[in-house]
């Protein structure tokens, strides 16, 4: 390979080392966050043009608002009725596509009471920009 010399080798080695570090760390964290706690309550999330509806384990349904309890674990089962959407609670790094004919799961546990934005983060047409809902975390 021509006259490659030691500064270039060192440089490439440093880059590769950094990448290995990033990769390993990412693997570790993803492994941790994907481990769903046993007692997580299931919330069924359905996206459709252009609103979100939710169903709790006890059968209660909500549209455009989601009431959850602080320090409780929840597992979202996300799907869509029409086109792809993306269920996103940015403050809690909850983000997953809502795909018709498929159920995607992600869990989280809100550790702060208050109101948080739920939004659609996958382009889905006319009112995509306003496909929003509110997460209300209650202190109990």
């Amino acid at each position: 390979m021509g006259h490659s010399n030691w500064p270039e080798w060192i440089y490439v080695a440093v880059v590769i080392a950094l990448l290995c570090y990033v990769g390993a760390e990412a693997w570790n964290i993803e492994n941790l966050v994907e481990h769903v706690p046993e007692d997580a309550e299931v919330i069924k999330v359905t996206g459709q043009q252009w609103f979100w509806s939710f169903e709790h384990e006890d059968g209660t349904k909500e549209v455009g608002e989601l009431h959850l309890k602080k320090d409780h674990a929840y597992k979202f089962e996300i799907t869509s009725k029409d086109v792809n959407h993306n269920f996103n609670i940015h403050e809690y790094v909850v983000l997953l596509d809502a795909v018709p004919g498929q159920i995607n799961t992600v869990w989280f546990s809100p550790n702060e009471a208050g109101e948080f934005d739920i939004q659609c983060r996958e382009y889905c047409g006319l009112i995509h920009y306003n496909m929003r809902a509110t997460l209300i975390v209650e202190d109990v």
Partner: peptide, 29 residues
């Protein structure tokens, strides 16, 4: 990543992506 891929699939494609970086870095060098 957000389409609901498994952990293994995501890992494979993360490694594949990171593997492209050294070559780009060589150009910069």
């Amino acid at each position: 990543y957000a389409t609901g891929m498994t952990f293994t699939e995501k890992t494979v494609f993360m490694i594949g992506t990171l593997a492209a970086v050294p070559a780009s870095a060589m150009h910069v060098f």
